[in-house]
Design a protein around this nucleic acid. Structure first.
Length: 490
RNA sequence: GGCAACGUGGCCGAGCGGCUAGGCGAGGGACUGCAAAUCCCUUCUACGGCGGUUCAAAUCCGCCCGUUGCCUCCA
């Protein structure tokens, strides 16, 4: 099995062929650490986390980089506001970011480089560009000369003349051409600065990624990713610098995820319509956001709402119910049946369909549709077994096979159900804020459930209903099935 | 203004030349002591509009309408 994926550079879905298989080099633009991350960042992180897991599943040896921009205007401004050093702002939000990643179950990158740790490399890149005539020094700043790089605009499908006509590029007397962009900014008073051949200053926005990629991955990488909003100018400018310097393709596949919107508008700090990952995490299990993200194709816009979070939560619980009910089915009386159960074949073809969907431009919604079809099938089996009050050994084995298959793939590739264990209760997975020190520990609930089963058998239903009602008030839901009573925390 | 993308059933959301997406919701039924969970059925001509290509178009082409993104920092 292979992967076909949309390449922003060519505008087509292409066969994925790494430069040096089985190695795959991936770089994604990380965050600028001046504030908490929001759902928009979360989507990007989840998308590339799953893409990486899928490539690993395909047998590739993935080397994955995600950077931190830990010095820029916003960080400096924030530091000024708080009368503190810019590094303490950066460190604070890097710590915050790591906590979000851990909550979201996003695998750490192999290298997570910071701009401030790569000044020599960045200066090297700029020096090289100046020497080759692609960049010029002007009043302590260094600018990349867009006109020196004829292919400028090839990623974002723009041509420089049109961009100039747009006239929204801020004019600067230091620039020769309004499209030229800063590689090095001379330091103003009170700003962080590093020594350079052009005087004290700090790097521009785009060079850091180039320098870090050269250092940790090489001159040509396989996949360069990020949000759609980075295509221009950021990625365009990265290409210009990197390819001007090396004369080699910088990245073979440019992969961009669609943006998160709220009420149709882009989620952003400036509009104030953002929801932080921290808030999501305080209200929902991380799997819910992950599932929400994966229910939409990675290139489409995703409109976030709390209603949608609720819908997704219900869809998630439906999934868990079917997996968990394996334990109930095991309690039913068994009987022998001839031959192998057809469900075995269905599971195998579902698994095939799952990966088939992913290999065609990473179609996670399609893959989930396959999973949910299988879930429906399992529920039909379950329904029949419950109504007959028994299950054949073969069928039970097939059900277990299905549960294991779903669990394995959703966990390994989608990063879902990381902390799901068949013998543990669903609510432990879904429940976010378990009251600390609750007196309602599992053994106590099980005792009540047992007592209730007893009175039900004696048909003293008002007592049974009372127990169920009172437990419900305490957030414990009971469900009676032919194989016994199932309980969960709400 | 320029450059892109998108417009699918009650809502969300795949599909991108012929074949059931899927999720959520709503109504009816089965099961159940009652609930819940689950299953089955239903939700009529689902594919922005108008033309065109084709034996066949949601799917390709053209025009129009609408929404959004990028053009400034942004995942």
């Amino acid at each position: 099995m292979s992967l076909r994926i949309y390449n922003t550079l060519t505008g087509k879905v292409e066969e994925f062929v790494p430069v040096n298989p089985p190695n795959v080099l991936i770089y994604t633009c990380g965050v600028t650490v001046y504030d908490d991350s929001h759902v928009g960042h979360g989507r990007s992180l989840i998308v590339f986390d799953v893409l990486r897991r899928f490539l690993e599943h395909l047998g590739y040896r993935v080397r994955f980089l995600r950077n931190f921009t830990d010095v820029d205007d916003k960080i400096i401004n924030r530091a000024k506001q708080e009368c503190t050093h810019f590094m303490s702002i950066a460190n604070r939000y890097i710590a915050s970011y790591y906590l979000d990643m851990e909550n979201l179950k996003v695998k750490p990158a192999d290298v997570e480089p910071r701009v401030t740790e790569h000044l020599p490399e960045i200066i090297e890149v700029i020096k090289g560009l100046v020497e080759k005539g692609y960049a010029y020094e002007s009043g302590g700043d260094v600018y990349f000369s867009v006109s020196a790089f004829p292919e400028y605009g090839k990623l974002s499908k723009r041509n420089p003349e049109e961009l100039e006509a747009g006239a929204r590029v801020e004019p600067s007397e230091k620039k020769r051409n309004p499209l030229d962009f800063a590689l090095w900014k001379s330091a103003k008073a009170g700003e962080p600065a590093w020594a350079s051949p052009w005087g004290p200053g700090r790097p521009g926005w785009h060079t850091e990624c180039v320098a870090m990629i050269f250092k940790h991955l090489g001159e040509t990488i396989d996949i360069h990713g990020g949000g759609l909003d980075l295509v221009f100018p950021h990625h365009e400018n990265e290409i210009a610098q990197a390819e001007a310097l090396t004369g080699k393709p910088f990245a073979r596949y440019w992969v961009h995820n669609g943006l998160v919107t709220v009420g149709g508008q882009k989620m952003s700090k400036s509009l104030g319509n953002y929801v932080t990952l921290r808030e999501i995490n305080s209200k929902y299990h991380p799997d819910i956001l992950r599932l929400l993200v994966l229910f939409t194709h990675y290139r489409s816009p995703l409109d976030f709402s709390w209603e949608k979070m609720e819908e997704t939560r219900r869809a998630y619980e439906r999934l868990l119910n079917s997996l968990e009910d394996l334990e109930l089915l095991k309690k039913l009386p068994n009987y022998e049946e001839k031959g192998t159960h057809p469900l075995f074949e269905r599971v195998k073809s579902a698994e095939e369909g799952f990966f088939q969907a992913l290999s065609e431009d990473f179609n996670t919604p399609q893959a989930l549709a396959v999973v949910y079809n299988l879930i429906s099938e399992l529920n039909r089996v379950k329904n029949r077994a419950f109504s007959e009050g028994k299950i054949s050994t073969q069928e039970l084995q097939a059900y277990e096979f299905a549960v294991n298959s779903i669990h394995k793939n959703l966990k390994g590739v989608f990063g879902l159900l990381e902390d799901y264990k068949p013998e543990c209760k669903v609510e432990k997975v879904v429940q976010r804020e378990l009251e600390a020190g609750s007196v309602l520990d599992d053994r106590l609930i099980e005792l009540l459930v047992e007592v209730r089963s007893l009175v039900r058998r004696e048909k003293v239903f008002y007592v049974a209903d009372l127990i169920r009602e009172k437990l419900a008030e305490l957030g414990i839901t009971l469900e009676d099935t032919p194989a016994g009573t199932k309980w969960k925390r709400q």
